[in-house]
Design a protein around this nucleic acid. Structure first.
Lengths: 197, 197
DNA sequence: GTCTATAGACGGATAGAC
DNA sequence: GTCTATCCGTCTATAGAC
């Protein structure tokens, strides 16, 4: 099931995200897969092609995810302050502990200035999709008269981007996760007290 | 005045921030300075020592800056919505166009996961100092009865971190600066309309 | 598809002349 | 302090046996 090609891509993501593309050698990838480095060339023509395949896979992955997030549904009983805080905390806990997601986030962060495709992915993943998701959430909260109306895109930004900053902080200093969780609670609570109807 | 040692550090910052520490060769640094690579070793014992000196210089630089920001003073006539938006836009324009600051930000971004000292610098520069500065601003705005009181740290986060997200966006896609400037205006305006007394 | 062997360039770092 | 010359290791990639 797990082809050698896929195992190479997995090892490459692991190493590229930890050490960077340039700093990772074909020998390291081969060692991680358990083959000789020359054998890698039976699957990919070059190191660059490994990265390109990785990017293609991530692009597809993100496309699926943003379709999914567009299908997000409001819970039947409406949304409460505590419920929203809990939901955001759960999402953050998930993206903080899912190894694949962490690696993808780090890879995009450290390679964004050297690879235009990665830059585009990073903008989509860390900015556009985040803003869209939160705008849709804010829309629902306004339509259901939980929040007062306003510049919905900016309300989405004010809700989402502090959380993004804390996610970045946890990527650097995972030991601060508990602190961040309580900040998220205070943040959502303060956001609601400012915007509640 | 500009010693060879300093010119090496300048070239190293330039190259490390563009290509990463591991991907930058001593030959590249030497070429940029205009000497042979062996001559670099008359100034630094190793490539690592160049990075260490760079980090030491940045640490000192940031320390001075956060002392300065603690001395920030409220303008005599108080702070208006438009005045604050303009002030934030000016700060962002400054940090977006100052070449040294851009390089430092990119270096910290791409090396933060591989170098603990850089991780600490990044947290101080992009998180702690930003939050402290904005908390002091929020304090003034509440004390002078411009804004209603609340969880001041969270209000600072909600004001500051959307701007940080847009700064990151501009580092990847500088052509979106104008769009970001108008987003900042809308953001500050929406922030005030939510929190005005 | 995996292996050994190797080409050829480039990496960091050192020795010693000037 | 800068130079030339060199060491030796590693890099990406290829050739060819199995």
């Amino acid at each position: 099931m797990s082809s050698t090609k896929q195992r190479i891509l997995d090892a490459a993501l692991d190493l590229f995200s930890a050490n960077g593309f340039e700093a990772t050698g074909m020998g390291q990838i081969a060692d991680a897969v358990g083959i000789r480095k020359s054998s890698l060339y039976s699957h990919f023509a070059s190191k660059q092609e490994i990265l390109d395949n990785l990017i293609a896979a991530l692009t597809e992955e993100f496309e699926k995810r943003s379709v999914l997030s567009r299908e997000r549904e409001t819970p039947a009983g409406g949304i409460s302050v505590d419920g929203l805080a809990e939901s955001i905390k759960n999402q953050i806990r998930y993206v903080l502990h899912d190894e694949h997601i962490v690696k993808v986030r780090k890879l995009m962060t450290i390679e964004q200035y050297r690879n235009p495709q990665i830059a585009a992915l990073q903008t989509k993943h860390a900015y556009t999709d985040v803003l869209n998701y939160n705008r849709s959430l804010i829309n629902d909260l306004i339509e259901s008269s939980v929040l007062i109306d306003g510049d919905r895109e900016m309300m989405a930004a004010q809700l989402a981007f502090p959380v993004s900053a804390w996610l970045n902080l946890c990527d650097r200093e995972p030991e601060r996760e508990q602190e961040v969780m309580s900040l998220i609670e205070r943040h959502v609570s303060q956001f609601f007290s400012a915007y509640k109807k």
